[in-house]
C-alpha cells in the first residue's frame, strides 16, 4: 500500500470502539464488520489514516485488553500475547533464550519511541512484507491464534499472509503467537539490510539451523521485503538439509534464494540489489546461525 500524494495532517473522522474484554472486542468486531480496523499500538495505522491511505468508519481499539500483553512458557511452547510491545520483547530474557532471532529483530525495530508502543500482534496483522518480527517467527514455525465470536483457530503463521497488507483474518482477533520451543543444538540469526537501523528493511532475513553430527538436520530460512509477503526460502532449505556443514554447501544453497524470492524495485531498494543482497544475507545468516549452533 503506498501513500497517496495528498498528505494531510489530520485523520478522517471515524468512530472508536474501546472494548475492555476480549468478549466485548469480538462482539464489536462482529457488530461492525465492514469498514473496520483494529488498532493496537497504532504506529502503522495512525500514519496510514493520516495520509488517508485507509479511512475506516470504525476503529476497534484493543489497547485496553491487558490480558493479551504477556510472554510466557507453557509446556514446550513459548506464547506471546498479541499486545506485547516490541520493547517488552527486547527486554525479555525468555525470548532471548528461546527465540534469539526475534530478540535480534526487536533491537533494530524502528525507534525506541515506536518500540514503546508498537505490538507484535500489530506488526503481524499489518502484514507488511518487510515486517521485522515475522521472518524470525517463520523460521520458528510459529502459529497464531485467531479468535472470533464463533470460536478460535490456530494456524501456522506462514498461512496467515495473503499479500501486501493482506491476511486471512476476517473479523478475527489475533490473540496469541505460539512458538514451539526448539530443543537440541540449534542456532538462529536475524539481520536486516536498511539505510539505518530505524528504517524499514530493504531485505531482512532470519535463519534457524539445527545440527546433528556435523550435518544440517534442519534448516529454516525466511526473508522479508523480497516478495508480496514474508516468505520461507524453501529452495535454500531443501538444498541444505542433511548436507554437511561447509562453506561450499552454504554458498551454493545461498545462491538458490533467487528461486524463492520475487523482489520489486521501490523507494527503498531495487530488484537487482535485493536479489544480490539476499544471497549475501542468507549466506551470512547461515554462517552466523551455524556458528551459534556450534557454541
Amino acid at each position: 500500500m503506498s501513500y497517496p500524494h495528498v498528505i494531510t495532517k489530520t485523520i478522517k473522522e471515524f468512530k472508536l470502539i474501546s472494548p475492555t474484554t476480549i468478549e466485548e472486542a469480538l462482539y464489536a468486531l462482529n457488530e461492525y464488520k465492514t469498514d473496520t480496523r483494529i488498532i493496537a499500538g497504532g504506529t502503522d495505522l495512525v500514519p496510514l489514516m493520516k495520509h488517508r491511505a485507509v479511512t475506516p468508519k470504525y476503529v476497534v481499539s484493543i489497547e485496553k485488553l491487558k490480558e493479551l500483553d504477556y510472554v510466557r512458557l507453557v509446556g514446550d511452547q513459548l506464547r506471546i500475547g498479541a499486545l506485547t510491545k516490541i520493547n517488552t520483547i527486547k527486554n525479555s530474557d525468555v525470548i532471548m533464550k528461546n527465540c534469539y532471532s526475534l530478540y535480534e529483530a526487536s533491537l533494530v525495530f524502528a525507534t525506541p519511541q515506536i518500540r514503546n508502543v508498537a505490538t507484535i500482534g500489530g506488526n503481524i496483522c499489518r502484514s507488511s512484507p518487510s515486517a521485522d518480527t515475522v521472518p524470525s517467527l517463520l523460521v520458528f514455525n510459529a502459529q497464531v491464534k485467531l479468535v472470533n465470536q464463533k470460536g478460535e483457530r490456530i494456524i501456522p503463521l506462514e498461512q496467515f499472509f495473503t499479500g501486501p497488507g493482506l491476511n486471512v483474518a476476517d473479523s478475527d482477533l489475533l490473540t496469541e503467537i505460539i512458538i514451539p520451543i526448539e530443543k537440541g543444538e540449534y542456532g538462529t540469526a536475524f539481520h536486516k539490510i536498511s539505510r539505518n537501523t530505524s528504517d524499514l528493511a530493504k531485505v531482512n532475513c532470519a535463519v534457524k539451523v539445527s545440527i546433528s553430527h556435523e550435518k544440517f538436520s534442519d534448516v529454516k530460512v525466511a526473508l522479508g521485503a523480497v516478495s508480496d509477503r514474508p516468505i520461507r526460502a524453501k529452495n535454500v532449505e531443501k538444498l541444505l538439509i542433511d548436507k554437511k556443514i561447509n562453506a561450499e554447501n552454504i554458498e551454493k544453497a545461498s545462491e538458490m534464494v533467487i528461486n524463492d524470492i520475487n523482489p520489486i524495485t521501490d523507494v527503498r531498494s531495487t530488484e537487482i540489489y535485493r536479489k544480490e543482497i539476499s544471497k549475501v544475507l542468507v549466506k551470512r545468516m547461515l554462517n552466523l546461525a551455524v556458528e551459534r549452533a556450534q557454541k
Partner: peptide, 30 residues
C-alpha cells in the same frame, strides 16, 4: 513539537506512563 506526523522524527516525543512515545502516533482517545 510537530515535525513529521508519522513518528519518524521524534520531535513530538512525550512520556506516557514513563515511556517515551511519539505523541503523533497515539490516539488521544486511548
Amino acid at each position: 513539537k510537530f515535525g513529521c506526523g508519522n513518528g519518524e522524527c521524534g520531535a513530538c516525543t512525550v512520556l506516557i506512563d514513563g515511556e517515551a512515545v511519539n505523541s503523533c502516533l497515539v490516539l488521544a482517545l486511548n
